[in-house]
Design a binder for these strands. Structure first.
Lengths: 233, 233
DNA sequence: GAGTACGAAATCGTATACGAAACACTATGG
DNA sequence: CCATAGTGTTTCGTATACGATTTCGTACTC
């Protein structure tokens, strides 16, 4: 389930149309980092790789553009968007807001079993910190939040969260690195969040906590960046 | 400027490609109600209307699908999405959140001139209530909020707001009607919001107020609906 | 009379082909 | 040596064409 949850974004079914196939394939390559930010997406090339013609590929790229994963310039071509630290800031800020809302809306629907599952994931995350496994850590982090959002009653908001994640994924491996200390804080905040939920705290408090959880990561990044070069690109 | 603000959604330029043209045209027809929810979008027909071939139209529709304005079923066709009251609820709830955030982020950047402009718009809205002109009222309502959001430093969030508005626009004229009393409350809340901003209230308070402004409209709608038939479709 | 099976029309999905625009490179003049 | 104009190549943009799928209407059977 976590796998599907990670992939899902647009309602469009996973049917076997070539357009869908192209969409899924290109998106997967962007999210998993095969195509990193700035990568030039040449229609004909992708079409050949996938064994289809250019028309479905164009469609796929247009959709990805609407999701913000790709930048498409008239008569020039498509490139994987990202790179820009400003973009990272925008994305994180937006995520902070929609994740906060998603968590608050989900909270009343989260049962003891879910909390237990989330705790298990969080424990694994702690292990990752021992062995220093950032990739797995990131994946588990999504799993953790997936558990929280599973029951989110508003699919639109959930969709926004997923889109944000995808955007981040396209950025992560290349430009933006871990802020070491932050990871430890993160798992602690997860535990705090779970306790808030268990204790039946007000949606407002839960939202604030969830929101801060995300903003704190952004702040840590900004602090680190500004330490190096202060000039925001 | 209000006109552009109302139209903008996807970063894609307004260049003259046929694909762009088709996208803009279909979107406009959805937003202005020419194509109401459930309307069957036949590719060949649209292509002929616009004097282009089907390929650019497909692209356009795919983009609109990613924005949530259109539902696209494999081998069946595209229809204008909407209709469903549940969808209305989701959209309003989401808007409440992103508008709240957008307002809070914009507030520190709003100057006296902007406030004055917003007041002028709000005054016009009051007039609309006298002459009962819901269409103009809705348009002015967007103008009002456009003034507030103009300076929003996060374009992603602004984009989400616009998308929400477009979705609402596609719904409004057909299914969802005004809740009469609500309109009066609305202009009062606008004034209160402006005063909050002028007084330099905390972003948190501003966000709450802006959020409630939107939720209240939703609540009014729900109350009215439940009064009639309680069964949420 | 109701339900099912078949066939025709409508519509979608994709490949191919060709024209148009942008880009890179070279040659020429200052 | 640098700037600029011209040419060739790459890549995009869209029209057209055809095969695939669904839908709807009709006839047939029970």
């Amino acid at each position: 389930m976590t796998e599907t949850a990670r992939a899902a974004t647009t309602p469009a079914a996973t049917s076997g149309s070539k357009s869908e196939q192209a969409y899924a394939a290109v998106k997967a390559r962007i999210v998993d980092g095969t195509y990193s930010p700035g990568y030039r997406l040449v229609l004909a090339k992708i079409a050949e790789d996938l064994g289809v013609s250019v028309v479905p590929v164009r469609e796929a790229i247009r959709r990805l553009e609407a999701e913000g994963l790709v930048k498409f310039e008239r008569n020039v071509g498509a490139t994987v968007s990202g790179i820009d630290p400003t973009e990272y800031l925008y994305t994180m800020q937006t995520l902070s807001i929609v994740e906060g809302a998603a968590t608050a809306l989900s909270a009343p629907l989260i049962g003891a079993a879910d909390v237990a599952r989330a705790r298990a994931v969080n424990a694994e995350m702690r292990e990752c910190l021992q062995h220093f496994d950032p990739v797995r850590f990131t994946r588990l982090n999504q799993d953790f939040h997936s558990v929280l959002f599973e029951h989110c009653p508003n699919p639109h908001i959930l969709d926004l969260v997923h889109r944000g994640w995808n955007r981040l994924a396209s950025l992560r491996s290349s430009t933006f690195r871990f802020v070491p200390g932050r990871a430890h804080e993160s798992v602690d905040e997860h535990e705090a969040l779970l306790q808030l939920i268990e204790s039946g705290a007000s949606p407002d408090d839960i939202e604030k906590a969830a929101r801060r959880h995300r903003s704190a990561t952004l702040d840590a990044y900004l602090a680190q960046t500004n330490a190096g070069s202060l000039s925001a690109h």
